[in-house]
Amino acid sequence: MEPVSLAISCDDGYVLRGHLWEPGSSEEGGLGAVVVIAGATGVKATYYHRYAAFLAENGFTSITFDYRGIGESRESTLKNLQASWYDWALKDLDAVLEWAQINCAEKHLHVVGHSFGGFSVGLARNGRRINRLLTVGAQHAYWRDYRPGHRLGLWWRWHILMPALAIWNGYFPGKRLGWLEDLPQGVAMDWARSPRDFTTGGAGHAREMMRAHRASFTAPTLAVAATDDPFATETAVLRGLSYYYPNSSAILVQLKPQDFGRAEIGHFSPFHSSFRDTFWMGTIRWLRDGVNPWALK
């Protein structure tokens, strides 16, 4: 199944690149829904292409995209690129959701958000338009919420070294370090901030706008995280839900590796194709029917 390339213009003129998968005429499992996949920080959209194709095979129209400064949406250099988590949510995700609304107007709009992508919907103006949200390992990367045993190492890497290198280089050279994709300086600095500082930051108008966006989100949310995810602990996920989705009827599910016949799952594995017949199939039940398939786990 070959996707169609997309070029989506944001309100400020920045052009994002993405891909669109359409289901075949005989694939009706999605019941007329489009799913936007909002990825994690520093992860290219290609990482989610196999899952997007799987959704199309099950009747959903699916969309992936790269945030500004990442993957196919990266310009020649990241230095001096004004891009932050605010921009990724308020400009980039908002533009993709609007594109989906306009071009798939007859379909319900759902979002699957991984890590940062899981809470970016709450900041976006068009988040209020979606019908159902699935978050996977979504949290703010707050060091006090990291899993014990990982906390010191993650604090040093992401809250000391990353912002320092971002300031020194004018961007974060994550690819050179083998950690993740390079990041715009503003994104790296937002990651290093506490969630309360992030959600209350900015000028008065921006603060009020974000508060209004979060309050307007009322779609049901299924928040999923693995019990061995060093970032998305139960405390971290609940904190994110309370900050970004205060008016959503949210369900938290913690997946145990042994329930999937695994020694570990972690933060990224749920989007590996080896989970196609297990975790991926479970997501179909939520996106199609609004049913939590892991209610008894």
Rank of each mutant, 00 (worst) to 15 (best):
Y142A: 12
Y142D: 11
W143M: 10
W143F: 14
P148D: 11
G149H: 07
H150R: 15
G153H: 07
L154I: 11
L154Y: 08
W155A: 14
W155L: 14
W155Y: 11
W156R: 15
W156Y: 13
H159N: 10
H159W: 01
H159V: 15
L161M: 13
L161D: 02
L161Y: 06
M162E: 09
M162D: 05
M162Q: 12
L165H: 12
A166F: 05
N169R: 14
N169H: 15
N169C: 10
G170A: 03
Y171F: 13
F172G: 05
P173A: 03
R176Y: 03
L177K: 04
L180S: 09
L183E: 08
Q185G: 06
V187S: 12
V187R: 03
A188C: 09
W191C: 07
W191A: 14
S194G: 15
S194R: 11
R196G: 04
D197R: 15
G201T: 01
G202Y: 07
G202W: 02
G204H: 11
G204K: 01
G204M: 12
A206E: 15
E208F: 05
M209L: 13
M209I: 13
R211S: 14
A215F: 14
S216Y: 05
S216G: 05
P220A: 11
A223F: 09
A223I: 14
A223W: 04
V224K: 05
A225D: 01
A226M: 08
T227A: 12
A232N: 01
T233D: 05
T233W: 00
L238C: 13
L238P: 00
R239H: 08
R239P: 05
G240E: 02
G240L: 08
G240F: 00
